[in-house]
Nucleic acid binder design. Structure first.
Lengths: 225, 225
DNA sequence: AGCCCTGAAATTGTATCCAACGAGGCGAAA
DNA sequence: TTTCGCCTCGTTGGATACAATTTCAGGGCT
């Protein structure tokens, strides 16, 4: 192909770009579960060789996004509703613990940034929920950032990483897109409560709100399907 | 090079063999944290090319065993004592929850296999703790299997995988080798209690024992360093 | 003396080529 | 007609060749 530097964003390895792009496509639902992934096809699509594509796929497999079977191929991992519920349950366990720690350890910066993110989400209240695809995706990104900020405020990197891994494979964007406006507003309200619990340094409250928040989301999801 | 099938164990990809071997060397402490990993060196040691070695390293990085920095190289990940403590704390959280679930959901097979593993560990009571390297490693493997069995009995695959990941990077063999005979016997006793809790289907008891078991191990470790 | 610049060596990242394996189709025999 | 076996093809796994980047030593400059 001989196009050494196709993308302007320098410094990024081709393998990383491929990884990120495929990941986004899976999380965003553009690549359906069960769909086959062929190295040569992707290589051509990215104007790269199979080598970095392969590297990206190995990483995706390690992160639980795809299933690789030797000499046979790679498919987007399928998850049953039960597995998705499990993911939410473990997230509830980890993130509620993190929220409790965060209530004890947060500093002013944490609170400021959470407020900022919350304002961003509230600003999206007026968007047309079914039509505005990009808007929904932005809200979802803010939601993820909010959760990550609380994980960071727990000051426990291991806890944060374990939870973040589950958030990723939880296909958040996809699930968020399915949320109704009502669910979204409940979510906003619970985030507000979370901030309040952190402000007043109340670990038990923060923990309970986070658990309720995540298990509630799980149930909304389960009810739809 | 040109030695297409060096190892008799067929069916295994070269990349998998390299992955497993490096992983064992890191977990076993034969590769020290901070040590540099050079692809070409490993490739020669395994009589392979750099391609499968590189694939293995990417996986190891994904699993948190090594740090890859672009164009610079790969080093065995260093963990501070604080990080190791964190790992044990999150393990305590996940595995105690799993133990509680296991107490409710276990069947007779689970109990039988746990008994079997426990007998195996008890049989090692007579080994010379400082001299018998292989013996210690076997005990460590049995211990890991015991914990994995309880995770499996929780019937929550997500929970089990999250915990297993942390067990792996906890460098169990290494830590176990540092355990004194006294620690080992305390461990045996707690495993017995765990089985009793599962037999009597007592989730709260199982949960508490597991939490105490893991946090105790963390403290023994912290006290040494 | 200390610092920066430069260049060569070492090492990683990517491309291409070859080998091995699995999937599916076709044909022959029961 | 159905089923077993073989064969071809497509795809992945691995080897080798090449390009790009970092690192570090050494020399010149401030």
């Amino acid at each position: 192909m001989a196009s050494p530097k196709q993308d302007g964003r320098a410094g990024l390895r081709m393998a990383d770009r491929v990884y990120e792009e495929i990941r986004r496509e899976i999380v965003g639902g553009r690549l359906a579960p069960g769909e086959k992934i062929t190295e040569a096809v992707l290589a051509e699509r990215f104007g790269a060789s199979r080598t970095p594509v392969r590297s990206a796929i190995v990483r995706l497999a390690g992160d639980g996004f795809v299933d690789m079977t030797p000499h046979s191929g790679t498919v987007v991992k399928h998850r049953t509703q039960g597995e998705v519920s499990e993911i939410y349950e473990v997230r509830a366990l980890l993130e509620s613990t993190a929220a409790g720690l965060a209530a004890q350890r947060r500093d002013q910066r944490d609170l400021d940034e959470l407020e900022e993110l919350q304002r961003g989400m509230e600003a999206a209240s007026g968007l047309s929920w079914e039509a505005d695809e990009a808007g929904v995706e932005r809200v979802s990104a803010l939601n993820q950032a909010f959760h990550r900020r609380i994980l960071a405020a727990s000051r426990n990197v291991t806890l944060a990483e374990s939870a973040a891994r589950l958030m990723n494979i939880g296909f958040l964007i996809n699930t968020y897109a399915r949320f109704s406006r009502q669910e979204f507003e409940r979510s906003l309200f619970e985030h507000r409560q979370l901030i309040a619990a952190l402000v007043s340094r109340d670990p038990a409250w923060a923990e309970a709100v986070m658990r309720a928040h995540i298990l509630g989301a799980r149930n909304s999801l389960a009810a739809e399907q």
